[in-house]
Structures are given as C-alpha cells and as structure tokens.
C-alpha cells in the first residue's frame, strides 16, 4: 500500500469519524435542551402567575382596584392608560397595605409612596410594576411575575 493511498484512507476515516461524533454530539446537545424543557414548568398548579380582568371591570379614571388574591393593585391613570403595581413587599415578601400616603408593610414597617418608591423602612427596592397585555375578547392580562420600573403604563382601549 503506497503512502498516499494510506493517507487518503486515514483522512476519509477521520472525516467519517468526525461527522459521526459531530452528529452524536448534536443529538446529545439537543437532548440536553429537550431535558431542560422537560424540567421547566409551563403550567402552574398554585395561584396562576397571570390573571385576566375584563376591560369592563377596570377602575374609573383616577381610581384603583385591589386584587387581594393576586396581590396586585390596578390603577387607571387616564382613560387610555392603566398600570398594575405588585403589593408584595420588596423586603421579605409580606403583602403591603394601601394607605393614604402610598403603601405600608405591616411586617417591618417599610413605607412606599403612591408610585411604590421606598420612603422609609428596610425595603431595598421600589415595588415592582407589572406588565399588562391586552388579550382578545375585551380582557387584559396581568403578569405578576414581571418587574418593570415605576411609571410603566400600558394602553387600554
């Protein structure tokens, strides 16, 4: 067997082996990704993360509506602008109360102003503002898992 032939053969061997292992690696990576999705939750068995509110039930302009179960306050700034603010204290997760000056936490006395900015107490951060989506059928969907900067309003029809 001549040297060239031998080299050509070993190169072909190398390419075949390489592509085989490449494909296997690709499948393994895909399996890894699939297993990630396999483990990742797509539904919630507890309190759902998102909830729907019919547009007809939204508060009047300048008014607020508190959803105690979901720990959210829904505020209508203008006729076309609404916002949702989480009522979960950024300190240790108690539910804050709506008071005249803003929000107050019953656990460790954190105080927030009406926009959720910290004005006193141990709270480290502003109350999260939440994302609101318009969904078909005259409803809005509030996602309690989001955290947007204060003053994030969403349009409403």
């Amino acid at each position: 067997m001549s040297k060239e032939k031998k080299e050509g053969k070993s190169r072909r061997e190398l390419i075949t082996m390489g592509s085989a292992f490449g494909l296997m690696g690709l499948a393994a990576a895909g399996t890894g990704g699939a297993l990630f999705k396999y483990m990742f939750p797509v539904v919630s068995y507890g309190t759902p993360q998102k909830f729907l509110v019919p547009v007809a039930d939204l508060p009047d302009v300048g008014d607020e509506l508190i959803f105690e179960d979901m720990k959210v306050v829904l505020r209508r700034q203008t006729a076309t602008e609404i916002a949702a603010i989480s009522l979960v204290c950024t300190h240790l997760g108690c539910t804050v109360n709506r008071v005249e000056t803003g929000f107050q936490c019953p656990c460790h006395g954190s105080q927030y102003d009406t926009d959720g900015l910290v004005v006193g107490g141990p709270a480290p951060k502003t109350l999260p503002w939440l994302e609101i989506k318009t969904v078909p059928g005259g409803q809005v969907e509030i996602d309690t898992a989001t955290s947007l900067p204060e003053g994030t309003f969403f349009p409403v029809a």
Binding site: E13, L23, M24, G30
Partner: peptide, 23 residues
C-alpha cells in the same frame, strides 16, 4: 475501521433524525 465509522455515522444520522422527529 472505516467500515465501522461509516456504520456509526449512518446510525448516528438515523438517531439524529429520529430525535428530531420526537422533537
């Protein structure tokens, strides 16, 4: 050896296709 690698390649390809089908 190349025969073996070829078999492996074919099987790996088949496996990849079936994996894609499951996806």
């Amino acid at each position: 050896m190349i025969k073996d690698y070829r078999t492996l390649l074919i099987l790996a390809f088949a496996g990849f296709v079936f994996f894609a089908m499951s996806m």
